[in-house]
Design a protein around this nucleic acid. Sequence first.
DNA 1: CCCTCTGTTGGATT
DNA 2: CAATCCAACAGAGG
Length: 266
Amino acid sequence: MPELPEVEFCARHVRAGAVGRRITAVEATIGPPLEGPPAAFAAATTGRSVQAVRRVGKQLIVDLDIGHVLLHLGMTGKILRHPIAQPPRPATRLIFTLDDGHRLDFVDSRRFGRVAAVDAAALAEHLDRLGPDALEITADPPAMAARFQGARQAIKVALLDQSRIAGVGNIYAAEALFLARLHPWTLAGALPVAAWAPLSAGLAETMNASLQRELGEEIIYLQEGAESPFLVYGREGAPCTRCGTAIVRTVQQARSTFWCPTCQPA
DNA sequence: CCCTCTGTTGGATT
DNA sequence: CAATCCAACAGAGG
């Protein structure tokens, strides 16, 4: 999945194609990303009009005239807008037909994505479990520090905890720690106060850089043959762009962490 | 061809 | 807390 920048890109795409439109049909195809019966989801969304599209962390929220649709893209989810006549791509799991001759297809080969129709109370409950959006909170390093106060996990692991701050995933956590020159195993709650400014700035920098790149149709790091835009993520063994030391890959919480042992000393 | 490993998430289990 | 496994699939490499 897309992390925060990719979900933001998706939100803009859906906003442009759906706000003001009415949903005329909903079709669940193979392996629908729904928790309940597809008929219940269709009943809650068919005939509704789209009023707004929002994002909090990696969550996408579509506000309807009655109710809301909550979408999470998992690892491989994306939403594509097609003319109605165009055949759906493989791995299309859910199809929204709109009143402007286009469809919005939820395509997700790995099927970790989730979609649900919720009322205001359920939406609020869901969002209550998330910390503040990462792009907003990074503008305020002391507030960032407060969110991680007392955290006795490694900083790399704590950054992925969506209840502290929402939107950071495995890629941008590694990139931000490199930019801030922080060792991934530093205990989050033990970071010196002075570290929160560069870490906040690093997060904002790496996520904003991706947002700038992703003005096209597809997510940049998924494009075939594209050169990796990342400094450490996925670059095990390659020379550090800053000092030339070979980038190391290790595992934290069953997830790869990439980092430079010289630039990010313990 | 087959087998193994890895992958952008998040949740459950031990 | 932590480590580990799992969901379901695709792609890379041996």
